[in-house]
Design a protein around this nucleic acid. Sequence first.
DNA 1: GGTGAAACACGCCGATG
DNA 2: CATCGGCGTGTTTCACC
Lengths: 155, 155
Amino acid sequence: MQLDRFDYQILQALQKDARMPHQKLSQIIPLSSSQIGRRIQQLEEAGVISAYRAELQPEAMGLGVLAFMNVCLERHGEKAIKDFIQGIDAIPEILEAHAVTGDADYALRVVAADLPSLSRFVMHKLLAMDCVRSVKSSVALEQVKRFSGLPNPAH
Amino acid sequence: MQLDRFDYQILQALQKDARMPHQKLSQIIPLSSSQIGRRIQQLEEAGVISAYRAELQPEAMGLGVLAFMNVCLERHGEKAIKDFIQGIDAIPEILEAHAVTGDADYALRVVAADLPSLSRFVMHKLLAMDCVRSVKSSVALEQVKRFSGLPNPAH
DNA sequence: GGTGAAACACGCCGATG
DNA sequence: CATCGGCGTGTTTCACC
C-alpha cells in the first residue's frame, strides 16, 4: 500500500490520540470527514494500523521498575530457541523480546513492581530456563524521552 | 488511587482494544456499562490511562529497521546532560530514551528506513553531538514477543 | 444502575473530474 | 471509471435522574 502525505498526517494524529473524531481530523487535514473515515478503514485493512490501545502509566499500576535485559542462550539449536520463545511468551513481565545483533542473542524489555521483584524475576524465571546461559540487566533510572509515535519517514 | 480487580480487568481489555464499547466490556466484567464508563473516566482523570493511541506497523510505514543503542556521554555535567536530552528530543527516529544503570549512560530505541539510514543516523546525528562519547548499537533481527499491554501485577 | 439526548461512525447516493 | 462530499441510520458515550 502506497501512503500519501494525507495518510501520514492521519497516522500521526491517531498515534497521538486514537479517539480524535473524523470531523476534527478534517479540520486539520484538508479532506472531508467521509474521506478521512475511508482512509482510516483502508489503513486498518492494510495492517498499517494494527490496533488501538490504551496507554497506561506503569507506576500507577504498581510497576515501578523498568529494565532492559540482554540474554545469551546456552545452545542455539532449533529446540533451544523454540523453548526460549515459548518461555518468554508465558512470562507477562516480559513486555517484548527481540533477537538482536551484537554480544547478546536476545534483548528483553521487562517490568516489575520493585527491585526485589526484578531480582526474583531474573533468578527464578529467566535463569531458571535451562536454555539461558547469561543475563545482563540495565535498570531504567529515568525516562528522558517518552514514546509518542513513529516518525514520518518522508523527511 | 487504589485499583481493584475490576479496574485491572478494564485496563487489560482496553490495552488490547481501546475501542471496545462499555456495553461489550460489561459482558466480560460483572459491572453495568454505566459503571464501566464511570471507572474509565476515573482512570483517565487519575492518569492511569494516559492516552489512547493507534498502533502502527513500522514496516508498513517504510521503517524496516529497529535498533537499541547504548550511549555514553563525554562529560556528565548538568549542561552536557541538558544538551543531550534536548538533542534526542529533536530527533524523531529516537522513539524513547532512558537513563540506565550499567555500562552505558543512556539506552535508546531507534527506528530507521534501512541499515544505510541507520548508519547515517549514528554518524551524522548521534555522534555529531559533541556531548556523546560512544554509541553501541544492537539491531533487532526479529521480534519474538510483541508488546500487548502491561501485566496485572496482582499475581 | 438505568434512561435519555447528543455526538459519532459508517454505508449509501449523487456529483465531479 | 475512480474519487469525492453530503446525508441518513445505527451505535456509542455521557449527563442526569
